[in-house]
């Protein structure tokens, strides 16, 4: 039984990568170039299925872009030149990691700002909690009178 399951799992896993591809993609013969191509594929956003990289997407345009990246690298482009080539055509949008610019500053700084804000609130809250505990509210005149009355009543009863 276990063996049957193993075989089935192996078959399924083997079939998965092939399912999305209509024509086979040829990896580059040069292992170093191919490694750079695959790394770039993971950084470039698929324009059709928006939150996938072109490495993950099986859209036709993603396949064209994967092929394009391999071509540019073979032609001698550096990684930055390849990304610049795509940004010139599709804008910063094509990068999964947006560059730090005035327009994107908020995206990058928001986690730090929120952490500072949250941390500040916690500190403030904690401090006030301690201050309240340390210095209990003084009793008002009528409260003190009532308290004394209650205490004296108690003495009388005992």
């Amino acid at each position: 039984m276990l063996r049957v399951l193993t075989v089935l799992a192996a078959l399924l896993l083997g079939a998965l990568p092939a399912a999305g591809q209509t024509t086979p993609e040829v990896p580059l013969a040069d292992a170093g170039l191919e490694a750079r191509a695959l790394a770039l594929h993971r950084e470039i956003r698929c324009l059709v299925c928006q939150n996938q990289s072109i490495a993950e997407s099986n859209a036709e345009l993603a396949r064209d872009l994967r092929r394009l990246v391999r071509e540019r690298l073979t032609a001698g482009d550096s990684d930055d030149e390849v990304t610049a080539y795509l940004v010139a055509r599709y804008g910063d949008w094509v990068l999964l990691k947006p560059p730090f610019r005035a327009a994107t500053a908020l995206i990058w700084l928001a986690p730090i700002l929120l952490l500072l804000l949250g941390g500040g609130l916690v500190v403030l809250w904690y401090r006030r909690g301690r201050r309240d505990a340390a210095a209990p509210e003084a009793l008002a005149a009528d409260e003190r009178a009532r308290l004394e009355r209650l205490l004296s009543d108690g003495d009388a009863g005992a």
């Binding site: 036709e60 345009l61 064209d64 055509r89 599709y90």
Partner: peptide, 13 residues
Amino acid sequence: RNGRVGIDWGVYG
């Protein structure tokens, strides 16, 4: 035919 000029125009659909 191969969509390459489309990429130059920033076509994605």
